[in-house]
């Protein structure tokens, strides 16, 4: 149930992470682990995809890996 989760996958939470520093998709998935949000893997991927499409973050390659970031 949502009340038992200690982490919520929301646009605001993703936005705050991406303003702080560039992150890969894997970095983001680590922040919103299914065991902490209570979401399934599929839900996590779908919700995160929708959020990233809305936020439309900047992208840059660091160490050959694509990172997302936002500026305030």
């Amino acid at each position: 149930t949502p009340s038992s989760s200690d982490v919520q996958l929301t646009e605001e939470a993703v936005r705050r992470y991406l303003i702080r520093k560039p992150m890969t998709t894997k970095d983001l998935l680590k922040k919103f682990q299914t065991k902490r949000t209570g979401l399934s893997s599929e839900q996590t991927v779908n919700v995160l995809a929708q959020i990233l499409k809305r936020l439309n973050p900047e992208r840059k390659n660091i160490n050959d890996k694509m990172h997302f970031y936002l500026t305030e």
Partner: peptide, 20 residues
């Protein structure tokens, strides 16, 4: 697990690639 995270990252990137 790590491999599940890899799979999720791959699925997420695949979904975003259509958009980017």
């Amino acid at each position: 697990s790590n491999s599940e995270e890899d799979e999720m990252a791959a699925a997420l990137e695949a979904e975003l690639n259509d958009f980017m």
